[in-house]
């Protein structure tokens, strides 16, 4: 089961080397329901990654707060209830593929034979059969990102945070991995937050697309995606999918006009 995320009047400010304060994000408020998949769509530099880091409990907000089932995110993070996939695969180069997947469990000290078997099954399910003992530098970027995805899922997280996870991949790999991701998310009912600037990816993955303004990122509008929970490659050829794409693109255009106006 997933968890409910509440973002309440969140702002993040950075101090530059020059001493100036810069508003990176917000104020922004939003809610993600238990088991819901939400995409945050916005231009580069609008504070999407900052938002994800605060949601993961890796960065303190300047004001406002994020709650996960009523708790500060650092608590579920310590319990291994949050899975994060970054834009880069961020695999530890000194650990094998299998060891990378098992890393979250090793850090919490609860690896046993059953979990190791589960990690191997997960790797097989995601197309990395035969690469369990390989090192990251022996894999392509696409394979490394598959491994990162398996690592995020090994703890059966309640919340999955994805920071443009397939941005560096070619079109074919990206499409395959998007469906792999959907397949992994579905049975667990995980609550997921996808950061992206790709409209197609946002619509394909989510139940709701939230459009952010340019920096400092604020919620401009949202579009509900009514394509059902289970999605397969045929959805890409459906009219409904493209209707949603057009709606999101319109929302994006309007948001730019709104900001400019």
């Amino acid at each position: 089961m997933g968890a409910r995320i509440v973002v309440d009047e969140l702002t993040v400010r950075y101090r530059l080397k020059s001493g100036d304060l810069i508003n990176a994000l917000g104020p922004i408020s939003l809610e993600v329901e238990n088991g819901e998949r939400v995409a945050l769509l916005g231009p580069s530099g609008c504070g999407k990654t900052t938002m994800l880091k605060v949601t993961a409990g890796l960065l303190r907000p300047s004001s406002g707060r994020v709650l996960m089932d009523g708790e500060d995110p650092s608590l579920p993070r310590r319990r291994g209830e949050i899975g994060v996939v970054f834009q880069k695969p961020t695999l530890l180069p000194w650990r094998s593929v299998l060891e990378n997947v098992l890393l979250p469990l090793r850090i919490r000290g609860d690896v046993d034979g059953r979990l190791e078997r589960m990690a191997i099954d997960l790797l097989h399910a995601i197309g990395l059969k035969g690469f369990e003992r390989s090192y990251p530098n022996e894999l392509s970027i696409g394979m490394q990102q598959r491994c990162a995805l398996a690592r995020a899922m090994i703890q059966s997280p309640k919340v999955l945070l994805l920071d443009e996870p397939f941005a560096s991949l070619d079109e074919m790999n990206r499409e395959t991995l998007n469906f792999d991701l959907l397949r992994l998310c579905e049975p667990n009912g995980v609550t997921a937050l996808l950061i992206t600037h790709n409209v197609y990816e946002a619509v394909l993955f989510s139940d709701r697309v939230i459009v952010l303004s340019e920096r400092p990122g604020r919620k401009v509008t949202e579009v509900r995606v009514d394509l059902g929970k289970e999605r397969d490659p045929r959805v890409l050829e459906s009219e409904r999918f493209y209707e949603h794409i057009i709606r999101v693109r319109k929302a994006l255009r309007l948001s730019r006009l709104e900001v400019a106006g």
């Binding site: 880091k53 993961a56 409990g57 890796l58 993070r77 310590r78 319990r79 291994g80 949050i82 994060v84 970054f86 880069k88 961020t90 530890l92 890393l103 979250p104 850090i107 919490r108």
Partner: peptide, 14 residues
């Protein structure tokens, strides 16, 4: 050191 790596390990509760 790539700070994404340290963030990642912290995200596991390290």
């Amino acid at each position: 050191v790539d700070e994404d790596l340290t963030d990642l390990v912290r995200s596991f509760g390290a």
